[in-house]
Structure formats: structure tokens, C-alpha cells
């Protein structure tokens, strides 16, 4: 017991975002006009490089009911696999027209959410590995005590997915499927469907990052 340990600070504890998370993070969804610039689910600008995609889905609870008060954020690399962040040390040119981040709230009636973004390039992994193209995704909501992190991979990247160190690290191979977004084309638009099941059959893999 009585060692003289180096005392780190403790991370501030998480608490639920609650049902009214929109007020602070998506005020326009709560009909509040207060800020000039509002964050949203549109990651693509006119000159952004890369294949335009729409990422959409619903989040389901343990009874299979959609969460209608959930907040979703995504973070991803640009089309060349570079993160627009000082902590990306690859030394490759970053797309100046891509923030890499978006935020949205599920529809209050249906629980549907979506982002308009681009398909990211592959990003280096550890020790010389390559990660398959993926999008980091986190959800916050009433009843979620600490944000749930997961990753979105792409159905049409089967070869890269098979080599991805994070997917391979999921011991129960069938569960890897919960991280693969399904591709479809709708009215000329590329749509990836990514449903999240917090609990129950086909529970999504959540990550401790």
C-alpha cells in the first residue's frame, strides 16, 4: 500500500449527454438560433477530393427500438488517408477542403441519421501495417453513461478489411460484420448503411480506444 506513487490527475468522469444534448451541440435541431456558424452533417465542400458517399443508419436499443435522441459524430481521414490534424505526422499533403469531422442528431420521429462525406483513404496502422478505409464514430445519448466508440468499414473493401489490424483483433469473427457498412446505390448516389445495435442480437462491437 503506502508507496510514494507518482500521482497522475484523474480524467474528469463522463456523464450522460441527456435528452437535450441538441441545445448545446445542435441548437438548430432544438429550434434555437444563437450561433452564426453551426456544426452539421455536411463534410463535403465543392472542392473536396474523393468519392461522394452518404453514410446513414439508425441506432437501436436492447428492445430493438430506434433511439430518437441520439447524437452521432464521425471523424475520418481525407481521400488520401491524411487526417487534417496537427497530430498526423505522415508529412503528406492534406486536403484543405476537408475538416474530417461532422455531427448530427437522429430524427426526432424516426431515429434516422446521415452524413454526406467522402470515402476515406487507407491510413497507416502500427508497425508497418495498413488500416482499411474506416470512419471513427461515437454516439452519445440519454442512458449512455460514457460515449460509445465504434468504427465504420466498407463492404466493398473486403480485401483491405481482411488485413485490417483492428478488425482482425476482434476474436469473434462473426462480430466483425457489425462494423461493415452495406453499400447501395440510390438515385445515382452511393449510400452506405450502418445500423448500430447497442445491445442484443448482433450487438455492435464497441471499442475501448
Amino acid at each position: 500500500m503506502n508507496h510514494w506513487n507518482f500521482q497522475e490527475l484523474h480524467e474528469t468522469p463522463s456523464q450522460t449527454g441527456g435528452p437535450y444534448v441538441h441545445i448545446g451541440l445542435l441548437p438548430q435541431q432544438a429550434n434555437i438560433e444563437v450561433f452564426e456558424n453551426n456544426f452539421n452533417n455536411q463534410l463535403v465542400k465543392e472542392n473536396t477530393l474523393g468519392e461522394r458517399i452518404r453514410l446513414e443508419g439508425q441506432v437501436f436499443d436492447g428492445l430493438g427500438l430506434p433511439l430518437r435522441d441520439v447524437l452521432i459524430e464521425i471523424w475520418q481521414a481525407d481521400a488520401n488517408g491524411v487526417y487534417p490534424s496537427a497530430a498526423d505526422m505522415q508529412g503528406k499533403a492534406v486536403d484543405p477542403n476537408f475538416l474530417g469531422w461532422g455531427r448530427t442528431g437522429a430524427d426526432f420521429e424516426t431515429g434516422f441519421w446521415s452524413f454526406n462525406t467522402i470515402k476515406p483513404g487507407s491510413v497507416p496502422g502500427r508497425k508497418g501495417t495498413t488500416q482499411a478505409p474506416h470512419i471513427a464514430l461515437i454516439i452519445f445519448a440519454r442512458g449512455i453513461n460514457i460515449g460509445l466508440n465504434t468504427r465504420v468499414y466498407f463492404e466493398d473493401e473486403a480485401e483491405a478489411n481482411a488485413q485490417d489490424p483492428v478488425l482482425k483483433g476482434i476474436e469473434w469473427a462473426p462480430r466483425r460484420q457489425t462494423l461493415i457498412a452495406k453499400r447501395e446505390e440510390r438515385d445515382g448516389e452511393v449510400v452506405y448503411r450502418f445500423d448500430i445495435r447497442i445491445q442484443g442480437e448482433d450487438e455492435t462491437v464497441f471499442l475501448d480506444i
Binding site: T16, D61, G62, L63, L67, W75, A77, Y83, P84, S85, A86, A87, D88, Q90, L99, G100, W101, V123, P124, G125, R126, Q131, H134, A136, A141, R142, G143, I144, N145, L148, N149, R151, P165, V166, G169, I170, R175, I198, Q199, G200, E203, T204, V205, F206, L207, D208, I209
Partner: peptide, 28 residues
């Protein structure tokens, strides 16, 4: 004790991953 968490909590353990560029970067 916080009832809403009952149906909104994963039953499986989180999968721990070694961090990559994805986790150490963030939007500015």
C-alpha cells in the same frame, strides 16, 4: 439506478485496441 441505461448499455465487453493515427488525431 439510472433506468434508461439498462437498455442502452452493451452487454459485451468493449474491444480494446492499440491506438492508431485515427485515435490520436482530432478536428481543429
Amino acid at each position: 439506478g439510472y433506468k434508461t441505461s439498462v437498455l442502452r448499455s452493451p452487454k459485451n465487453a468493449l474491444i480494446s485496441i492499440a491506438e492508431t493515427l485515427t485515435e490520436v488525431t482530432a478536428p481543429h
